[in-house]
């Protein structure tokens, strides 16, 4: 078995937040001890609601943020310290695609120049080589050279997202982290971008982290899925297993809440209560206040993420204690 391309080992990240102007700063734990691995040629989908820590995970995977504790390794080597020359050199091996392509692009610069920018930053190639690579990157993402001469506002949303992807791929990265890359796009355009990402990954053997709140897109694109809730992974496994037969009550609620045309309204697990707030983490299992099957023990004891099958793990007392008892999806 080859070593994973990316590994996060028990990472935590706490932000300091102040209540009011003169309040004492309190720690808000965005990621609370998460381990995961991504192999070359594999897509890991990370799903969760706002405040689950999924974006912070993505930023740590890229080294844009250093974990407070735990370690991040890319290609077997430890992530260098933020801002060092080594860290900068590593940037070309791992790239990011954001949700809002307009915000990620400079409005005053033609897009071809923006696609070339990473090459200039990393001093790759001569000017003519750079032009060639930009041309290839445009073609790869289904854009014409004419598109390259335009400004961001002259392109459609889907075309802009292609530009962002072209720019991310121009340094030939091994790892691509996509944070809600299609959430702002219309359905028909979303399909174009999703297909593009799937094809690029297959052609180039990229390792990919695909962060999204949309289970349907995650199902489409990921081989493996990790479900996050308040900074913890609560369930992990193949996309097929986790989304077809979710075991954790939170995953079950997410799957049942995903709207599906065609199927008439099924019996839903509708969660009561508010979305999770990292600043007010409940004791015990963080999900217990909204959990339809919570027991007394869940209030006090934090469940550990344990293996529940081959390549499949979950963090829930009810699963690990009494396998598959009372946890049917419907």
């Amino acid at each position: 078995m080859t070593a994973p391309l990316l590994s996060l080992d028990n990472v935590t990240r706490t932000y300091m937040s102040r209540k009011g102007l003169f309040g004492t700063p309190v720690g808000v734990q965005a990621v609370a001890g998460v381990s995961l691995e991504v192999r070359a040629g594999e897509t890991l989908g990370i799903v969760g609601e706002s405040g689950s820590g999924k974006s912070t995970m993505g930023r740590m995977a890229l080294g844009l943020e250093a974990p407070d504790t735990g370690r991040v390794a890319l290609g077997g080597a430890l992530m260098p310290a933020l801002g060092t020359a080594d860290w900068r050199a590593l940037r070309k091996r791992a790239q990011m695609v954001f949700q809002d392509p307009l915000g990620a692009l400079d409005r005053r610069v033609p897009v071809a120049r923006q696609i070339a920018e990473p090459l200039e930053i990393h001093g790759i190639g001569s000017p003519t080589e750079r032009e060639d690579r930009v041309r290839q990157a445009l073609e790869l993402t289904g854009l014409s050279e004419d598109h390259g001469r335009r400004f961001p506002h002259e392109l459609s949303g889907g075309q802009r997202q292609r530009v962002v992807i072209a720019r991310a791929l121009i340094t030939d990265p091994e790892l691509l982290v996509c944070d809600e890359p299609v959430s702002a796009l219309d359905v028909s355009i979303q399909a174009q971008v999703v297909n593009l990402l799937i094809d690029l990954q297959a052609e180039r053997g990229l390792g990919m982290i695909f962060i999204s709140h949309d289970l349907r897109v995650v199902r489409q694109i990921s081989q493996r899925v990790a479900v996050m809730y308040l900074g913890h992974i609560v369930e992990e496994g193949t996309a097929e297993e986790v989304l077809r037969d979710p075991q954790h009550p939170y995953t079950q609620a997410l799957v049942s809440a995903a709207p599906t045309p065609g199927a008439q309204r099924r019996q839903r697990v509708i969660l009561t209560g508010e979305p999770p707030n990292p600043a007010a983490r409940p004791t015990g299992c963080a999900f217990h206040p909204r959990c339809p099957v919570a027991q007394d023990r869940c209030r006090w004891e934090t469940p550990a993420l344990s293996q529940i099958g081959p390549g499949r793990s979950a963090a829930c007392h009810l699963i690990t204690d009494t396998p598959s008892a009372g946890m049917a999806a419907e």
Partner: peptide
Amino acid sequence: CGLIDALPTLDAPRRLVAIPGV
């Protein structure tokens, strides 16, 4: 028909059919 084909589902993934153009 195109909108429905472009929509990913929770069932087995299939190649999404994008509507070309804008």
